[in-house]
Amino acid sequence: MKYYLSLIAVASLSLLSACGSNDEPEVVGGPADPMAKELANAAPVELPPAVKDSRSYRCKDNSLLFVDFLADDKTANLRTEKGGAPTKLVAPEAGKPFVAEGGYSVEGSGAAITATLPGKGAQSCKA
């Protein structure tokens, strides 16, 4: 009985010792990358800013607005429906009103904003 246990132990150790070996061949000088020069000379990629604050607002005319303020403090995404497509609003510098073509404007970024939508005048909205 002791003989079988020692054989099992030796066989187990020999199998486990083979787990750490690396038998895969090393590839040296593989195929050349056809876009290597373009990638080396490409401009650095700038990631879009993260969402800093997301709020829903009730306006004076009883409409709802959904605004995502981004971390760069110069960009906001405005939606007039909860699942609707966003309109990207951009401010020339931090602290200035966010605007977009077509008559969109949002001034402020806290609990109260002033929003202007196409076909509507400026109105105050509260979170």
Rank of each mutant, 00 (worst) to 15 (best):
Y3F: 12
Y4G: 09
L5R: 11
L5W: 08
L5G: 14
S6Q: 11
L7S: 09
L7M: 09
L7C: 07
L7E: 01
A9M: 13
A9S: 13
V10S: 10
S12F: 15
S12T: 15
L13Y: 02
L13M: 12
S14Q: 09
S14A: 15
L15Y: 08
L15I: 06
L15T: 05
L15S: 09
S17T: 08
A18N: 02
C19I: 12
C19M: 12
G20M: 00
S21H: 13
N22K: 04
D23V: 07
D23I: 09
P25D: 10
P25Y: 12
E26R: 03
G30W: 02
P31R: 06
P31Y: 10
A32T: 05
D33K: 15
M35E: 11
A36C: 01
A36F: 06
A36Q: 09
K37F: 01
K37S: 00
E38G: 11
E38V: 10
A43D: 11
P44Y: 02
P44K: 11
P44G: 08
V45I: 11
E46R: 04
P48N: 02
P48V: 00
V51E: 06
V51W: 06
S54K: 08
R55E: 07
R55I: 02
S56H: 14
S56R: 15
Y57Q: 09
Y57D: 07
R58D: 00
C59S: 05
C59H: 04
N62P: 00
N62T: 13
N62M: 14
S63G: 09
S63F: 09
S63Q: 05
L65I: 15
L65A: 12
L65T: 02
F66H: 11
V67M: 05
V67Y: 04
V67N: 03
F69Y: 15
L70A: 02
D73K: 14
D73L: 11
K74V: 10
A76W: 07
A76K: 06
N77Y: 14
L78W: 03
R79A: 03
T80Y: 06
T80H: 06
E81C: 00
K82Y: 08
G83S: 10
G84L: 07
P86T: 02
P86Y: 08
P86G: 07
V90P: 05
V90N: 04
A91G: 01
A91K: 07
P92F: 12
K96R: 06
K96Y: 09
P97V: 06
P97R: 03
F98Y: 15
V99M: 12
V99P: 01
A100H: 09
G102V: 14
Y104L: 01
Y104M: 08
S105L: 13
V106N: 01
E107N: 08
G108R: 03
S109R: 13
G110Y: 11
I113N: 01
I113G: 01
T114C: 03
T114Y: 04
P118H: 08
G119H: 06
G119P: 07
G121P: 08
G121S: 10
Q123W: 10
Q123C: 13
Q123A: 15
C125S: 09
K126F: 14
A127R: 05
